[in-house]
Amino acid sequence: MRTDQCVLGGDIAAIIFGVDGVVLDTARAAAAAWKSVLDPFLRSHATGREAGFRPFEVRADYLRYFHGRPRSGGVREFLASRGPAPPAEIVLDLVERQERLFLTEIRRHGIAPFASTVDLIRAARRHRLRTAAISVDRYASELLTSAGVADMFDVRLDGLDAPGTGLPGHLEPCLLIEAALRMRTPPARTAVIEQSPDGVAAGRHGGFGFVVGVDRVGRGAALRAYGADVVIEDLTQVTLLRTPALIGRH
């Protein structure tokens, strides 16, 4: 895949990091939890319809339907690919069960941050750049704490912040804008680093100064199509400049 080198400098005074896939390596535990939830459902569905049982493929199905996407939308599309679209209450039940299994696994075994992301956050703090971590998942702050990186951010926003505040339940520009406001940094002087096309699009439509797409699974074309200024495989490809400079693609 083709990826870029990324240089952040010039007027950039803050960086917003997505939690899933940028700060924390959540994919393996999330995919395993989906398999534990979906395989019994698929087996029961196949028995009732006298159809063959096709198990959830941890890599292929997770990447296609769930990676970097809202859980409910992923479940609906995945199950629709196997048969009739399920009722909303079934989707909600599966999402809640997956979330419980995922959190149980994390609380039992912990979760690791990406070392390159930790290095970049530390470099940002040395450069006096403000930092924020954002997620629409209501347990994201707990995950950051479990990984030992919560205190590295000036601002943390997750799904627990949304009720009563007008913040959305899914990733939209206003969530990123709220993070920038809490850092007291205009969006135009703030960079966004996200792994999902929706996150990249939110950064682009929110008027942020620079949008970086992180492609660990071969979706660089989609990230570019949704508005990423650059696409990288890992945050080792990000360079912070001490002196004002143009931000560009190489």
Rank of each mutant, 00 (worst) to 15 (best):
A147R: 05
R64F: 06
I111S: 09
V231M: 06
R219C: 07
L79T: 06
I193Y: 03
G209Q: 00
R249G: 10
T26D: 02
D93V: 01
V211D: 03
R108D: 15
D151N: 14
R97P: 10
L160C: 08
M1G: 12
A180V: 05
I247W: 11
A32Q: 01
G52M: 00
G164E: 05
T243P: 06
I15E: 00
A46P: 02
G206K: 01
D20A: 09
G21P: 02
T185L: 01
F56M: 13
A201E: 05
G220I: 01
I106G: 11
L175D: 03
L42Y: 11
R204S: 08
G166N: 04
R54V: 13
D161V: 08
P244Y: 13
D20L: 03
G207T: 07
K35D: 02
L94I: 12
D137F: 14
V23N: 12
V136I: 14
V23I: 15
F114L: 10
E57A: 14
R125H: 15
E99T: 09
H109D: 08
V149L: 02
A132L: 03
T145M: 01
R100L: 14
A133T: 04
F41Y: 15
G206F: 02
T165E: 00
A32K: 04
G68C: 09
F114V: 06
L129G: 10
